[in-house]
Design a protein around this nucleic acid. Structure first.
Lengths: 327, 327
DNA sequence: CCTCCTTATGTAAACGCTTCCATACACTAT
DNA sequence: ATAGTGTATGGAAGCGTTTACATAAGGAGG
């Protein structure tokens, strides 16, 4: 609550300029004066007001780079409504609102890094090594939609744990008990997180979790569903690790004349565009893409202006969107 | 990068006051003027600069309340160096730096809520119902050191998953394979999170996770250790869900003449004060208490000034502190 | 002794926005 | 006609800092 800079100046009998110098450790200040100012600061319990100092110091105009794989770069140019494009929009909006520029660069362009003040790393192809390499530059780094255990890099992701937990609670609330989870490779944190949330919710209500792994690259959904039918029987609900998985599972069930949602409820994750258009439309957990971008950029900005530097994982809550594929 | 408010004013031929009114939807503006201003805003791709508007509008002086249980209230008064006290200091510092005041109130005082602009909920005793009740006021709410699945309340917690993952990777790196985890009741998210991290790290390296549950209220450590010794044998390392658990386990082992760390490495979580003073001093994961407080207050402030309102879970990375209880 | 550099401090002009106040017009009610 | 009210706009004074510039004193080097 303690006063303003000018009060400190008055109390210690110097000018505001000198107080500012002491506070920011800049310019010349004699030891005597410094001590007097610090004493006044403590006496008044003075804290500089952030907004005012940003305004005055115009800590603006940073140059930022989004580093991504070719797949994502291409993705952005052709899918304006899906995750990466929308998130990027959010980032650019926030950044420009603070006079920062954003450029997209390819993962292999790690030589052109000097011209930038901070980096975003975007998407699933991000490796430990790349992340470490960027970290070594000492410049701020924010991972978007990616978290890598063991590397303390700031990241912004969606809360798969909470979303999955919520979905399971919802299904249980509808009286469904035999709920199966089909997840992707658990090496990817996103899948792991959702799987953990599913398991936690099932166990909290004392039901047995049952999971199947489906890796796009190796497995086909037909086999997974066959396996499930044989080893577990027909579930009352399937929670897919993402919308694509859920939709494929739904198609396999329809092929086998299983009625959705009457016999089996299906829930996905992500809320991709086709989730609204498949038949029946998919119940899912909506990821707030735009907000994720904004968050990432905000985080970056805070790192750049040196406030709030302790690394954090920011997880955005998702929203359960009820459509026709589930009770 | 688009200009400033005054540029918009110039382009649309009105005063800065009018532009400000349009942007903030305040005061009187004719439809014609509004449209002209909006057109100019778009043309220049103008975004208001946050810092400047905060400064000008003096969005300051909020009154905040920290709601906590009696245990925590007492805790704060007698343990100035442990979690809640330090976190509170961080909160107060940030808040006062933005002219906000903070008061502590007891959980049962939920009638005196009107005088406050925002609430913190602190500690493990926080229930779903209390959280829902506060949420219903519609005022900003931030949970400190607590997350409740299924309720989209902003929260600031430490990253147990990442910390546990790191600790396990460290132990594995030392050549230890038989790593056991003793966790608290998994109904508490903090324990669950750490447990998930342990399991994920073990599985990622293809070792078998082995966990034991220890509930302070019902179990005693002696029995747990006996059980472990019988069913699993002597592990090469024990990762305790927190420092208290780890220290108790260590004592039980010492009673049985097991040498720490030569025969068994012990790792805790939290870095409480006694972790440095027990014998041997405990390797653990340090929680950044002060930073957690700061984060919570920052989050609150952002909610209050209406920026950045999408609810998030903020997880602070921990730091591995190597002491003598482990290789 | 004069000049130049380093150190120390103060003055005052920004920074980009909000908002109080004054002004002005077009009504309506007296 | 006069006053009062609602609507629309502009002028200009802040908001609490930082920082460019000016000033000044105390050596060092010639």
């Amino acid at each position: 609550m303690g006063g303003k800079l000018v009060d400190v100046a008055r109390l210690s009998g110097v000018s505001t300029a000198t107080v500012s110098r002491v506070i920011n450790n800049s310019g010349y200040v004699s030891e005597v004066t410094r001590r007097a100012v610090i004493k006044a600061v403590e006496e008044l319990n003075y804290r500089p007001m952030k907004a005012a100092s940003y305004l005055a110091s115009r800590k603006l105009g940073f140059r930022l780079a989004v580093i991504a794989s070719e797949r994502i770069l291409r993705f952005i140019s052709i899918e304006p409504d899906e995750f990466y494009s929308v998130a990027l929009t959010g980032m650019v909006e926030y950044a420009s609102s603070n006079n920062c520029s954003i450029e997209m660069i390819h993962m292999s362009d790690i030589n052109a890094l000097d011209r930038f003040d901070g980096f975003f790393l975007m998407g699933g192809e991000i490796t430990r090594d790349l992340t470490r390499a960027i970290k070594k530059t000492g410049k701020p780094l924010v991972l978007v939609d990616q978290y890598i255990p063991g590397i303390k890099a700031d990241c912004v992701i969606s809360d798969g744990y909470d979303g999955a937990h919520y979905a399971v609670d919802y299904l249980l609330g509808k009286g469904l008990r035999k709920i199966v989870h089909i997840h992707g490779p658990l090496g990817h944190f996103g899948f792991r997180d959702r799987c953990d949330g599913y398991v936690a919710a099932m166990e909290r209500s004392r039901y047995l979790p049952k999971t199947y792994e489906y890796d796009e690259k190796n497995d086909n959904m037909e086999a997974i569903i066959d396996l499930m039918l044989k080893s577990y029987g027909l579930p009352e609900a399937i929670f897919g690790a993402n919308d694509t998985v859920a939709i494929r599972a739904m198609e396999e069930l329809k092929k086998r004349r299983v009625r959705v949602p009457e016999e089996v409820s299906i829930v996905g994750f992500d809320d991709i565009v086709s989730a609204s258009f498949c038949s029946p439309p998919l119940t899912t957990l909506k990821i707030f893409k735009h907000e994720m971008g904004t968050m990432a950029a905000r985080r970056m900005y805070n790192l750049l202006i040196q406030e709030d530097t302790h690394p954090v994982k920011v997880m955005l809550f998702t929203e359960f969107v009820k459509r026709e594929s589930s009770l």
